[in-house]
Design a protein around this nucleic acid. Structure first.
Lengths: 344, 344
DNA sequence: AATCTATTTGACAGCGCTGTCAGCTTGCTG
DNA sequence: CAGCAAGCTGACAGCGCTGTCAAATAGATT
C-alpha cells in the first residue's frame, strides 16, 4: 500500500554500522552494555537511514504494545475530556506510547464485555480512567481481575496499590460556600451532581461542612438533584426560584448546571448577581464567556491527566514512582456571577 | 505482564477444530474457498476458545495495521472536535480499526516532520484530516507524496481522486445574511474567520453574494478580520460598535466569535437583539445556552466525520465507494439573538 | 470407472524485532 | 604474563500471523 514507507529495517542499520542486529536493538532501546563508540556509530546509521523500528514486530517479539487505553464517558460535557486527552497525549507521545480512545455511553449494561474486548483486542498495556469511569466499581473490578494496570482520575478513596489521582473537591466546595456566606448569603441553594460521580458527593460534603461550620441552617428544600447537564441545572434552579422563600445564592456542582441556573434566573427576570448569586464548578472554556462570567472552581485537569499517564507508564516500565503525596489543588475563581447580599 | 490474556493462538484453534492454521486464518478473515461445514467448525472453535487474533502478528505478517490516524489542531475550540472524534470512532470501531489521535499546535514550523513521524511511527494506514488540517497544502502534499490515503473534512475544491467531505458553507452563509436583510438590516457587519481555514472564505463569499443579490451596499469598514476565537470576536465587534455609524447586525464566522460579539455589545450597554442582532456559525454546545441563545448555522459534523472515516476505510480495503454526490447540508437555526430592525 | 477441472486444504517461509545464551574482548590482579 | 571477572557483542530461535504454492479432494464429464 505504501511502497515508500517502512523500508529500512534493523538489518539495514546493522549492516551500515557494521554491527549485529542485536547491538542495534540494544542501542535503540537504550539498553546497557554497549561501548560508547559503538553506540555512536549505530546512532549515526540510524539517523542517516532514518530508521524507525517497526512497532508491530517489536510488539510481537517483545510483548509490549506501548499502547495505553483511555475509556471515557461519551457525554455532552467535553471541556473536561479535552483537558484529559491533551494531558494524557502530551505524556504518552514523548514516552513512545500511543493513546487509544474508547468512548462508552452510560449506562451500559454490557460495559464489562465492551471493556474486556477493548483491552484484549486493542492490546492495551494500561488504561486511564477519567471520571466517572474510575467511579464505577464494575470497571475497576474487571481491570483488576484482568490484571491490567490502570490510573483512575477520580475523587474516590485512594488504594495504595493502585494509581489514584485526586483533587481536593471537598475543600474547594467548602471554600466556595464560605465565600457566599461571607458575602452575607444565608439561604444558599445547592444543585447536586450526578449521583454516580464521586465528585458529586465530595462537593456536597464541602457545602454541608461550610454551612455547619458557620452556623447556617441546612435546608433540604434548597438542595436539588442535578445530573451535571445544563437542563437539569435549569430545572433544579427553577424549582428553587419558584419557592415562596427562594435562595439568594445558588451553588451548582458544575458550570453546565450553573449556566442552566443563570438561564432559569433570566427567564424569571432576575438580575444575576444583583438578585441572585450563582456559582459553579469546573471553569470550562465557556465559564468566563457567558454573561455574567461565572464564579467557579478551577481544577488542574490537564495536570492530573498528565500525572495519571506518567504514573501509569512508570508502572508499566517497572519504575515504581511514588504517587504525589497531596491531592491536586483546586482554585476558586471569583468572577461576576456572585455578589454580596444587599438586604432588601 | 498480563498472564491471563492473549493466550489462545491460531494454533490452538486449528487443533481444536482439526484443521490447519491457514484454514483458521481464512475463516477469521472471511476469505473465500472454505467449505461451509469447515467454516462452521472453525467458528465454533473460535467461540469456544474465545480466540482473538493477535493484532501485532497480523500487522507484521499482513502489512495491514488497521489503524487510522486523526490529525487535528489542538485549539481551544473543542465542540467541533468532539463531533469529529465521535463520528470517526463510531465508524472505525465496528470496522475493526483503531483511531489514533495526533494533536498539532498551529502554526507549527516542523509540521512536516511531525506528520511524517506520526505516519510511519504509528504505522497508520490512512488519515482523517478535519478542518483546518485539510486546508493546509503542505499537509495534504506530504500525505500525497507518502502515498497515505486521507480524507479531508474541509470546504476546499474537491479532488476527484481524493476523499473530500464538503458542506454548503457558502449557501448557509448566504441564507443567514439574507435572513438579516429580510429583517430590515442594511448595515450588517461581518467578522471573518481565520484566513487559513477554507471555511472562512466560503462564509465570507456567501455574505457578499447575499448583499449583492439584494442590492445592499458592501461596506469594507463593516468587515473585520477575526480568528475564530472569542477574543478576536470581541475585539472585532467592539471596533465596529465604536464606529460613528455602527451596524445594526453582526454576522460572525463562528459561534465563539459571536459570543465575543455579544460580550462586546453588553459591555457597551447594548441590548441584544433589541439594538444589535448577532448571528454565528457552527451551533456549538453552548450556542443555545448563552443569553440570548444564538441564531446560527448547524453543520452535520458527526455525519461528515462518519462519512470521511467510512470512505477512507472503504478505500483502504479496495472497495471504491463513490463519494456522496452533493455536499452535506447546513441548516440555519433561528434563535433569539437576531430580531427585525425597528427604525429609530 | 477414468479423466479432468474447480474447489478446498495445508506446509512452510517469512514479516522485523527482542530474549537467551554463548563467545569474544577488555582490563585487572597476582 | 597467565588467569579471571566484567563488559561487550553476536548467532539464533521464536513471537503469531498471512502469502505462496503445492497437494488433496470433490464434482463434472466422458
Amino acid at each position: 500500500m505504501n511502497p515508500e514507507r517502512a523500508k529500512v529495517t534493523i538489518f539495514d542499520v546493522a549492516e551500515h554500522a557494521g554491527v549485529s542486529i542485536k547491538t542495534v536493538s540494544r542501542v535503540v532501546n537504550n539498553e546497557p552494555n554497549v561501548r560508547e563508540n559503538t553506540r555512536e556509530r549505530v546512532m549515526l546509521a540510524v539517523r542517516e537511514l532514518r530508521y524507525q523500528p517497526n512497532a508491530a514486530a517489536r510488539e510481537l517479539s517483545g510483548k509490549r504494545s506501548r499502547i495505553i487505553g483511555l475509556i471515557y464517558e461519551n457525554a455532552e460535557e467535553f471541556s473536561y475530556l479535552n483537558d484529559v486527552f491533551n494531558g494524557a497525549l502530551g505524556i504518552c507521545e514523548p514516552a513512545g506510547y500511543s493513546l487509544l480512545l474508547r468512548p462508552l455511553t452510560l449506562p451500559d449494561p454490557e460495559i464489562i464485555d465492551h471493556i474486556r474486548q477493548f483491552a484484549t483486542n486493542a492490546r492495551v498495556e494500561g488504561i486511564v480512567l477519567p471520571a466517572p469511569m474510575g467511579d464505577l466499581p464494575e470497571v475497576s473490578g474487571l481491570l483488576r481481575e484482568m490484571r491490567i494496570p490502570f490510573a483512575a482520575i477520580t475523587p474516590r478513596e485512594p488504594d495504595p496499590d493502585e494509581i489514584n489521582i485526586l483533587c481536593n473537591d471537598e475543600a474547594a466546595s467548602h471554600a466556595l460556600t464560605e465565600l457566599l456566606i461571607h458575602q452575607g448569603h444565608d439561604a444558599i441553594g445547592f444543585i447536586k451532581g450526578h449521583p454516580d460521580h464521586g465528585a458529586s458527593h465530595k462537593r456536597f460534603a464541602g457545602y454541608r461542612r461550610a454551612l455547619k461550620q458557620h452556623g447556617v441552617a441546612y435546608a433540604p428544600r434548597l438542595v436539588r438533584q442535578g445530573y451535571f447537564d445544563f437542563e437539569s441545572g435549569r430545572i433544579a434552579a427553577g424549582r428553587m426560584l419558584d419557592l415562596p422563600d427562594p435562595p439568594s445564592a445558588v451553588l451548582a456542582s458544575n458550570d453546565d448546571m450553573a449556566a442552566g441556573a443563570i438561564f432559569a434566573a433570566r427567564k424569571r427576570g432576575l438580575n444575576v448577581p444583583g438578585e441572585l448569586s450563582i456559582a459553579g464548578f469546573d471553569d470550562t472554556r465557556f465559564s468566563s464567556r457567558i454573561w455574567p462570567p461565572l464564579t467557579t472552581v478551577r481544577q488542574p485537569i490537564a495536570q492530573m491527566a498528565e500525572t495519571a499517564a506518567a504514573l501509569l507508564i512508570d508502572k508499566l516500565n517497572g519504575h515504581s514512582t511514588e504517587a504525589p503525596d497531596a491531592p491536586f489543588e483546586c482554585e476558586v475563581v471569583i468572577r461576576e456571577s456572585t455578589a454580596p447580599l444587599h438586604p432588601a
